[in-house]
Design a protein around this nucleic acid. Structure first.
Length: 617
RNA sequence: GCUGGAGUAGCUCAGCGGUAGAGCACCUCCUUGGUAAGGAGGAGGUCGCGGGUUCAAUCCCCGCCUCCAGCUCCA
């Protein structure tokens, strides 16, 4: 392939880091067979970064083996953000070792060691692994389906690896080791403990720097830190994973609920509330007891066993089943801001992003199979509308299809998957969704909705799931136009997913600098001297009466100090009142960003602020 | 749940076998200053919890709890 690249042009040959033959990515040194479809990858290709990073993982292993002789290797793949390699070293690697490892890596980069592919059979592969002391990988050879097993040699280093790689180590100049952490051989907690060194690599210095800056920026935006600074929420040892919402955080929560309720009303939903504690039998009927009892909280009351709800759907099904239904009522759309509790493993808890009690902006729609596509379409439309209002316009979707252990008729599955796909196509996601084969729930296919935040990070939030199982389990029915009883299809959907998690994501997305309609403190009236104290407080009262969340700062500090505090407190508008303003009954308005909007009367500011709130700017 | 690390004032952190410190925040007083830090004073701590070692433990040891970084998991 290198010759082909050269024949096209010397520039291309130089830029060629890998190629693709019949869709499979390989290195440029690989021969091209007759009639093969091929392309040449340069740093600009999407797949190129993965090749570079996997090569960087090898580079890391080279350095570690040289610095820690006797190290055994685990796996070293590229990841979304970089790469890692798992090691079993004679002595533990610590953070302090990373600079030395990185320096050695950079020295090897300068050597420009080639990645030379060697192909062996199974027995040769095992012998070679044993020879270099990679004991962990020996049994793995038997699990490789191909008969030809490839190794990549770079100087004294060799590794069993599928490839492909960049031509030589000089390509991997822009690297950074980030962390060392515990891992297990093949991710098995019972297995061999290992150490994972993580890092990242880019083709150019600028991208690497930008990535590292993004990590720093993410730390500054950590919702746990901002949550404390803005007094939004707190967590306590008395309730690990159970967030406490403070007044400021509850403002955010209520604003989001308000937004969702507007949409629910417009889209023909009814809102319901169901109890948090329900009898065991319900959870046996729904199937949750069987599948998820380890994650549920149980309690005994009067010799009866109850469980705290881990999901809202069974309760909603009781509402549906409380009376007979006609096909004329369908689709029946029931929404619930439902608080659920799940006993997640202690190690996974993380601020608001992973909790044990959370509130889903849930809804269950009972409909016929024919109505699936239009109902799902409306849900996607609502998703787009809500996300756009909170500032997320970059939305990605995945369609998770029938898994191995699926229940129900495969034809019904196929039709449902078709309906989901069609709904995606017709609602602005055409060409923008990917299929995730086999990742659906056992009871039905689902759509996952991911948003991209201001730092380019992707978060899974919304979900739309078709359920062929639960209506039958609960014996739910409707009478069709034929006079016969039929079982409805049920759709579960959540737009934000979890209110807690979504607020956490929003905090990080905005770095706490919320648009006016979400901001806990929308305006602060700052007095310049004590003489304006009463006026400042009166202005704040007028603002509150006018529907704006306002406070007055009448401390004996200087105006500069008050501006600074309000700015750090992320208050959207500062209304400065000194002698001139108090005299004229005006306020001097300053935005959070520092723009001076001039003096105006309170009514003028109110109408400006109200417009901004109602438009959710 | 597993591996490793951490827990000292509201926050960020220093200290370290002889019962505790700074900055910011808070309170009081002085200052009344026009758009990102005016000054002085004061208050605030069972050094995460429980055991042990010691004449003496915030400090050393053991157990637990919580948090952090990963792993794993996420209906």
């Amino acid at each position: 392939m290198r010759q082909v690249a050269e024949s096209i042009g010397a520039g291309l040959a130089k830029a060629a880091l890998a190629g693709a033959i019949d869709g499979e990515i390989v290195e440029v040194s690989r021969p091209i067979h007759a009639d093969a479809a091929f392309r040449i990858l340069t740093a600009r290709d999407e797949d190129a970064l993965g090749v570079l990073r996997h090569s960087a993982a090898h580079l890391l292993a080279m350095a570690v083996l040289e610095l820690f002789p006797g190290t055994d290797l685990g796996f070293g793949p590229a990841t979304e953000d970089g790469f890692y390699y798992d090691f079993k070293t004679p002595r533990p690697i610590t953070e302090e070792d990373l600079p030395a490892i990185e320096a050695r890596m950079k020295a090897i980069v300068k050597e420009g060691r080639a990645f030379a592919r060697v192909e062996l059979d199974r027995a040769q592969a095992k012998a070679r692994l044993a020879d270099v002391g990679y004991d962990l990988k020996v049994p793995h050879v038997d699990e490789i389906p191909e008969d030809v097993i490839s190794f990549y040699d770079s100087g004294p280093f060799t590794d069993m690896c599928e490839g492909p790689h960049v031509p030589d180590t000089s390509w991997i100049a822009h690297i950074k080791l980030l962390a060392v952490s515990g891992a297990y051989w093949r991710g098995d907690a019972e297995g061999e403990p290992m150490q994972r060194v993580r890092g990242t690599a880019f083709f150019d210095k600028k991208s690497l720097k930008a990535y590292l800056a993004r990590i720093e920026e993410a730390k500054l935006r950590d919702h746990r830190k901002i949550g404390r600074e803005m007094d939004l929420f707190s967590l306590h040892p008395e309730g690990p994973g159970f967030p406490f919402w403070h007044p400021n955080g509850t403002v955010l929560w209520n604003a989001l609920e308000g937004l969702l309720r507007e949409e629910l009303l417009a889209r023909g939903y009814g809102e319901v509330r169901t109890p948090s504690v329900l009898s065991d039998e319900l959870w046996r009927t729904s199937g949750h007891y069987e599948h998820f009892r380890d994650d549920m909280y149980f309690l005994d009351i009067d010799e009866r066993s109850f469980a705290v709800k881990p999901m809202n759907c069974p309760g909603c099904c009781l509402i549906y089943g409380s009376k007979p239904h006609s096909y004329r009522e369908l689709p029946l759309r029931l929404a619930e801001f439902g608080s659920v509790h799940r006993n997640e493993m202690s190690g996974v808890l993380h601020g608001l992003l992973r909790v044990r009690s959370f509130t889903q902006d849930d809804a269950h729609v009972y409909c016929t199979e024919d109505q699936l596509e239009s109902e799902i379409g409306d849900m996607l439309d609502m998703t787009r509308s809500v996300y756009s209002a909170v500032g997320f316009d970059d939305i990605k979707t995945r369609l998770a299809t029938r898994p191995e252990n699926a229940m129900g008729d495969p034809d019904v599955w196929a039709r449902a998957e078709q309906a989901l796909g069609a709904a995606l196509d017709k609602n602005g996601f055409e060409g923008a969704w990917v299929e995730a084969p086999g990742e659906g729930a056992f009871y039905g296919p689902k759509i996952e909705v991911h948003v991209t935040d201001a730092l380019g990070r992707s978060w899974q939030c919304g979900t739309v799931q078709v359920d062929f199982s639960m209506p039958a389990r609960f014996g739910l029915e409707y009478t069709g136009s034929d006079g016969q009883k039929h079982t409805p299809v049920m759709i579960h959907r959540a737009i934000l997913g979890s209110m807690e998690r979504f607020v956490g994501i929003l905090i990080e997305n905005y770095a706490g600098k919320f648009p006016l309609w979400l901001a806990p403190v929308q305006a602060k009236v700052l007095s310049i001297t004590d003489k304006q104290g009463a006026f400042a407080e009166d202005v704040a009262r007028q603002l509150v009466a006018g529907g704006i969340r306002a406070e007055a700062d009448v401390r004996g500090d200087k105006i500069g100090s008050k501006v600074r505090d309000a700015t750090l407190g992320r208050v959207n508008y500062m209304l400065v009142v000194g002698g001139r303003e108090a005299e004229a009954g005006l306020v001097d308005v300053r935005s959070r960003a520092g723009d001076r909007l001039g003096t105006m009367d309170v009514e003028a500011f109110l109408s400006l602020a109200r417009a901004e709130v109602s438009e959710r700017r």
